[in-house]
């Protein structure tokens, strides 16, 4: 079961993903980080109660997503003329203007990836409690890792600020309720990223597998 046992006397537990150094320590103590002694990479960040917090936060994020995507974020007016922007109508007008690639990218990074992250994390946290979902949950963790850096709500937030200041001398800019939901969703998204520790999911699966093996063994001996 353990790897590399036959060749080396030491039980290697982990290799740094950035410098390939073999290490004997596997996990960080709760609430702390495990750093690579050679290259200083963060090997493991042990968030307390990771699964529970992540589940709560990702559900909050999903709930917040509904008003954020449907309510207008900003209102801009010159004289009597005004226009609003929502998360998707900018994407739609870019799409109509023929900027298909650009609008797809903006849609992906500001809507689809953040939504996908919330959905995947909610599924991971819920599904890790069931044995028959082990494979899909493993795949979900993998997709989450790929999707992680493409969710850019914080960058979008800065984009909103720049747009707000840039246009303020041209006309009147008003903040709409959707923006408050957006800020809340962005904060929740960042907290979710911080609280999620995939190691907790693997440990949960491992513990369950062990329990089942032990139960099977006890059944045979009796």
């Amino acid at each position: 079961m353990q790897h590399g046992r036959d060749k080396t006397p030491t039980h290697w537990q982990r290799a740094c993903h950035e410098c390939d150094l073999l290490l004997t320590g596997r996990l960080a103590p709760p609430g702390q980080k495990l750093l690579c002694p050679r290259c200083n990479a963060t090997l493991h960040r042990n968030a307390k109660n990771s699964i529970r917090y992540t589940a709560a936060l990702s559900l909050t994020g999903l709930v917040l997503f509904i008003p954020t995507a449907s309510l207008p974020l900003l209102h801009f007016s010159i004289f009597a003329f005004g226009a609003e922007n929502t998360l998707v109508n900018g994407v739609l007008s870019l799409f109509d203007a023929g900027y298909i690639w650009l609008s797809t990218l903006v849609l992906f990074c500001s809507v689809l990836a953040p939504l996908g992250k919330f959905l995947l994390l909610a599924f991971i946290c819920w599904g890790s409690g069931w044995a028959f979902l082990d494979r899909p949950v493993g795949a979900a963790v993998r997709w989450y890792q790929h999707l992680k850096e493409w969710g850019m709500l914080d960058v979008y937030m800065l984009g909103i600020l720049v747009a707000l200041i840039k246009m303020s001398d041209l006309g009147k800019m008003e903040v709409e309720p959707g923006l408050y939901c957006f800020v809340a969703m962005m904060l929740v998204a960042n907290l979710t990223t911080l609280s999620f520790d995939p190691q907790a999911v693997w440990d949960r699966m491992g513990r369950r597998r062990e329990r089942r093996l032990r139960a099977a063994g006890a059944g045979e001996s009796s």
Binding site: L74, E84, S93, S103, V155, A163
Partner: peptide
């Protein structure tokens, strides 16, 4: 790298926000 998308997000916001035909 991801922060470079700032300008593009701003464009997509402005395209929707500043859409008043001949005026702006």
């Amino acid at each position: 790298g991801r922060w470079s998308l700032l300008d593009l997000f701003m464009i997509s916001i402005l395209v929707a926000l500043v859409d008043m035909g001949a005026i702006a």
